[in-house]
């Protein structure tokens, strides 16, 4: 986790940065004047930082939450796997075309229990971001995910997917290799998996790209994540015919975790450290781990057959319409 001064701050986080700068100054002064005690001063400022973090997250607009979900310091899939598990063995490739670096997966031990983890991966610097294609998977990514899910099913291991994508990649080769088919196949096959499946949106949950690994017995969202049919930017461009309405689109789409939970489209919201997951990776991972363990224990009590029918029934109920006499 990056510490100040390597921390990055979003626009609405700037007041926190100023407090850090003040602490810095106090520390410098303390060095110059060893006789004066600056500790209480620094402690005060640190308390202020915590208060500011809380204040900021309490009053976030939907668009700011979207920004937080994309925070450059936010933990990504491999980070969570690293923090939550031991003995992670990453598995590569779709056995067909290539290995998609935007989609990662493999077996890992969560307090002694082997689980198949799968998720989109974003990069932490420019070079990595390009390698990971900004978390936008190609068809081979979805097929790799499905291969790993089937592998898990074969050995009766539960599956946990960590979703963080601005969408499936809209490229020429993606079309040639059947992006639509790959996502459709995954959605369909995930309904048929005999092992427990838990899906968690840890950052961005955009459209079919997210749903392609998003069908599960339990679907959760991290507090500062979003999940909907299209990114606010693209929604603005299509419906408002301009890129300038992304804030409005974010409001209209009601894409934040609180709404999604209220609508019954996800099973719950996992709380994040004060100010967002990027402030405390360990705590964020610990909360996530608790939720996974608790849900797994519940799901294991149910037979595979019943799990599948409940999984189908849950999604079958989703939708809003009225019925009049035809």
């Amino acid at each position: 986790m990056p510490q100040y001064p390597n921390r990055q701050f979003l626009d609405f986080e700037k007041p926190i940065k100023e407090l850090y700068e003040q602490i810095d100054q106090a520390k410098k002064l303390a060095e110059k004047n060893p006789k004066i005690d600056y500790n209480s001063n620094i402690e005060q400022l640190e308390a202020l930082i915590l208060a500011k973090r809380k204040e900021i997250t309490d009053n976030l607009t939907p668009w700011q939450r979207v920004q937080l979900s994309r925070h450059p310091d936010r933990p990504y899939t491999l980070k969570y796997i690293d923090k939550m598990t031991t003995d992670f063995v990453e598995l590569y490739g779709d056995r067909n075309v290539k290995d998609d670096k935007a989609m990662v997966g493999g077996f890992a031990s969560l307090d002694g229990e082997t689980i198949m983890f799968i998720g989109q991966q974003k990069g932490t610097n420019t070079k990595q971001r390009q390698l990971r294609n900004f978390g936008m998977a190609n068809p081979e990514g979805y097929r790799k995910a499905l291969r790993l899910m089937r592998l898990a099913e074969k050995f009766n291991k539960p599956i946990v997917t960590l979703i963080d994508t601005p969408g499936a990649f809209p490229g020429m080769e993606a079309e040639e290799r059947g992006q639509s088919e790959a996502i459709a196949r995954n959605i369909y096959e995930m309904f048929r998996l005999k092992v427990p499946v838990i899906c968690i949106i840890i950052g961005e949950g955009a459209s079919g790209g997210a749903l392609g690994i998003g069908v599960g017995d339990r679907v959760f969202m991290l507090e500062n994540s979003w999940y909907t049919v299209i990114s606010p930017e693209n929604c603005s461009s299509i419906l408002w015919r301009s890129w300038d309405y992304k804030e409005t689109a974010a409001e209209q789409l009601k894409l934040t975790s609180d709404y999604m939970s209220e609508f019954g489209l996800v099973d719950g919201v996992i709380s994040e450290p004060v100010g967002g997951a990027h402030w405390d990776y360990d705590l964020a991972a610990a909360t996530l781990k608790d939720t996974i363990k608790k849900s797994l224990a519940e799901l294991k009590k149910v037979s595979a057959e019943k799990r599948i029918s409940q999984r189908i029934a849950k999604f079958e109920k989703m939708g809003n319409f009225e019925e009049v006499k035809a």
Partner: peptide
């Protein structure tokens, strides 16, 4: 898009059926 996540979930619902 005007049905936001509800429309997204129809992809899952139809595939489930």
């Amino acid at each position: 898009m005007m049905e936001s996540a509800f429309s997204l979930m129809q992809m899952a619902k139809t595939s489930a059926k």
